[in-house]
Design a protein around this nucleic acid. Sequence first.
DNA 1: ACCTGAACACCGTTCAAGT
DNA 2: ACCTGAACACCGTTCAAGT
Lengths: 233, 233
Amino acid sequence: MARPRTPLLSRERIVAAALRLIDAEGLAALSTRRLATELSVSGPSLYNHVATKDELLDAVVDSVIGEVDLSMFGTPDGLPDGTPDGAPDRSPGGRPTPWPDALRDWARSYRAALAAHPNIVPVLAQGPGRRPNALRLADAVFGHLVEAGWPRGQATRIGALMRYFVTGSALASFAAGFPADAEVYDAVDYPHLGEAHRLAGHRGTVDEGAFETGLEALLDGLVLRFDRLTERS
Amino acid sequence: MARPRTPLLSRERIVAAALRLIDAEGLAALSTRRLATELSVSGPSLYNHVATKDELLDAVVDSVIGEVDLSMFGTPDGLPDGTPDGAPDRSPGGRPTPWPDALRDWARSYRAALAAHPNIVPVLAQGPGRRPNALRLADAVFGHLVEAGWPRGQATRIGALMRYFVTGSALASFAAGFPADAEVYDAVDYPHLGEAHRLAGHRGTVDEGAFETGLEALLDGLVLRFDRLTERS
DNA sequence: ACCTGAACACCGTTCAAGT
DNA sequence: ACCTGAACACCGTTCAAGT
């Protein structure tokens, strides 16, 4: 068989299969040949649909970022944007969501989307590049903060520090990074890690708790700064 | 030549060369064959000194973590530990550093060490594993927080959220993630990114400012929580 | 003990050939 | 337009052979 009547592959099918493979076995397990086998075609077939492996990774990354909810910034996901009144930063009710609440909801959705695919986070964390969903995300966050009254320079920094925190929390489980083997912590050098071998068993609650604590602490600290900023006028 | 009188290689020389290669050309550029060429030996020679490429990466990672200053927790770097008075958590002066100050100093040193080698951060962020320097770091932070009065569960979460923030900030430059090409932001979808092409030019100050803002906000938020915790008693 | 070349099962990608 | 096998320059790792 050389050219089937109906194509065996599509870009979407390739991207979806690549993400599945990365989730299941890690970034290192994604090889074009392995992926082709998974899709029941020969290796070179992929190159009819994607130019390079890097371009494929870019598409996978943007599909993950596309899962992040941005509706709290007044730009609902599915709806066509560009409302005639030129007020893109309103929630459906008509009034903009207070920025700390919008930031909290967004951060949770952002983390959930990334933590569902931790193995791709190192690629994603390199920045938006030219990926449309990543640029849309950056635009929505920055725009909302500026319209809420943050100076542009501060809004940029808040976008950055939120990404630091979210990508860091989605990159790997803190708890699971500690071997469950108690003997590891026997050494006299680690006098306080006597219980560390039990961390991996509480993976979910430890990481979730750390994320929520950090998120609320960050927001409290930012609100403090915002108040100092506005009480000056 | 088969076996030279004085060995051509050593584990230290291999680790150092690997880190140089990773820094200069990225994690993907590190191949055992390429590394061997860099060291003027044949590929398989490396296997007399390291068992696998993964073990080599582990050693590289731990050498980077070894650069992090932990002296603010009362365990000075170079000095032999185990002071006879059994008070490991004191600064040279004798009194423990207040935890917010210790955390701040540590976070800055942690970030500096990692940001000097961003390409290795994805590996490092997987957790301490069995790496001695990484375990020592976790022990010092956790121990200091507990002795400062934080409940153990909270101390664990603070260690986790600090690592989230620091690894996230060291993984990649926020500013450099935005293409310097102004045309990228022309699309109607990005109404607020008109100046984003200028970000890459301010790489240093944007990322540094975001890290400092986030760090101080986090610490403020944590102090708030600590006060709530202690005023209850 | 420590280095070498040969060999194995992999990679990403190109290209001519098929329909 | 879309798939194939063959081919190229790479990988990590093993192993027998050398000193």
